[in-house]
Design a protein around this nucleic acid. Structure first.
Length: 408
RNA sequence: GUGACCGUAGCUCAGGUGGUUAGAGCGCCAGGUUGUGGCCCUGGAGGUCGGGGGUUCGAGUCCCCUCGGUCACCCCA
């Protein structure tokens, strides 16, 4: 039997990979224009980074990590997300002050695969470090919004909430636990067990939605400073014309968040895993990792989901397909293809020994715009060029094929 | 981790109650056209019926296990 790709992983091949290519390219251009620098961190990290940074009580750390021991006896984990790594790298690099970085790459989470949820999945994201201004939150949210726009995804809205500062969360947590305790018999088993470990998570549980509907909201319990920050974010989004809706029940599954949390949804994408991206402010993270306090805000976009939601792109084709009419001219044809490529054109030929007819079939299937036939007329310095859309043909001087093709 | 459905050629699928050499369409390759695609015609290649075990004289078809897929829960990008 041929080995299969591991469960929950995907091979991304052409022509389907075209959407991925465009999205990744578009993201790089976008991030660079907003001033974020290319950032790469390891795909695997010491397990401790995630247990401390992401939080031991979170689902991600509790049961979704790919963790193994390496040959040196170290506990290693394939990264389930990139933010902790970027902050670790920042703290360890001696970098001072503001840092803006973007990243793109695969993440790993041991989960049951379904639509929009894979064991290896791709994220692109930005992190804006050492900038406490709510305008940094706004800029980060804007980057994600623009990415979705330029990917052709319509009806995008930003769901927005504030979960306050750590002290607010502690107080709120008590109030929420009290509320949940009164209704414990109505809750699902998971919700009950989560009451002690991570009660905020009960808020966005689908099974407990009706019970939680009139629970106190984090937004009502935040301190003055956090409320002012939130107001600043809202005002900024309005100024930037980014559509948002305040979602009092929105919380994030990772422990490091404070204040602003957000996610992107689109009416054009309606799988159960509906968030196309998400993020928030995570001022506590640097200290959780043992560093000095560093204000921070960032986002991660789910590339797999975005590609699912994107319009499909018709595959492109070669500008000039070179066909060999006389096998003795094969080397000349190879030379012509190389010359066309040097001239910046997409040029191909069939390297097998197929008949001219078969070569035309291949050319047609590949979506070639023009086919240049290398045959007897080569000795007169000519090739026959056929326009595939209407079949019109004409002789063209060999050295003029490139310029001729560029203008047609 | 839980549940439902599913797994036959490269792709989409047929294969009543188990019974001779497992089929179709599309795709692929070649030819019909001695230098030409998209339409048409002819021919061809291609399958350990996801894998393993069991029941049976006989299993693609029944049973068990396993791997994988899809969707949902959970959770998240």
């Amino acid at each position: 039997m041929i080995p299969q790709a591991p469960k929950g992983t995907d091979d991304i091949l052409p022509p389907a990979s075209e959407g991925w290519r465009r999205l990744l390219r578009g993201f790089e251009d976008l991030a660079v224009r907003y001033g974020y620098g290319f950032t790469m961190t390891p795909l695997f990290e010491a397990t401790e980074l995630f247990s401390r940074g992401v939080g031991v009580e979170t689902e991600v750390v509790e049961k979704q990590m790919y963790t193994f021991e390496d040959k040196g006896g170290r506990s290693i984990t394939l990264r389930p997300e990139a933010t902790a790594s970027v902050v670790r790298a920042y703290l360890g690099s001696g970098t001072q002050g503001v840092f803006k970085g973007y990243y793109a790459g695969p993440m790993f989470r041991y989960e049951q695969p379904q639509s929009g949820r894979r064991r290896q999945f791709y994220q692109v994201g930005v992190e804006y470090l050492a900038e406490p201004s709510p305008d940094a939150d706004v800029e980060v949210i804007e980057v994600g919004y623009r990415l979705l726009q330029q990917a052709g995804i319509t009806e995008v809205t930003v769901r927005l909430n504030s979960i306050g500062d750590p002290a607010d969360r502690a107080a709120y947590r008590e109030a929420l636990v009290a509320f949940l305790k009164d209704r414990a018999d109505l809750l699902s088993d998971e919700a009950r067990s989560r009451m002690s470990s991570n009660p905020l998570r009960v808020l966005d549980s689908k099974a407990d939605a009706s019970v939680v509907a009139d629970a106190p909201a984090p937004l009502d319990a935040i301190c003055e400073a956090a409320a002012a920050h939130f107001a600043g974010v809202v005002a900024g989004l309005q100024r930037r014309g980014i559509p948002y809706e305040i979602s009092p029940r929105l919380v994030r599954g990772l422990d490091y968040y404070n204040r602003t949390v957000f996610e992107y949804v689109s009416a054009a994408y309606t799988a159960a895993q509906e968030a196309l991206g998400g993020g928030g402010r995570y001022d506590p993270l640097a200290e959780m990792l043992g560093g000095p306090p560093v204000a921070a805000v960032g986002l991660a976009m789910g590339v797999d989901r975005i590609v699912l939601a994107m319009p499909k792109f018709p595959p492109g084709g070669p500008d000039v397909f070179v066909a060999v009419a006389d096998p003795a001219r094969r080397e000349d044809a190879i030379g012509l293809v190389a010359a066309l490529r040097d001239a910046g054109l997409w040029s191909e030929m069939d390297l097998g020994d197929r008949s001219l007819k078969a070569q035309f079939k291949v050319a047609g299937r590949r979506g070639s715009r023009l086919v240049a036939v290398v045959g007897d007329e080569w000795s007169e310095g000519l090739v026959t060029v056929r326009r595939m859309s209407d079949g019109e043909e004409r002789p063209v001087a060999i050295e003029e094929v490139a310029s001729w093709a560029t203008n047609r």
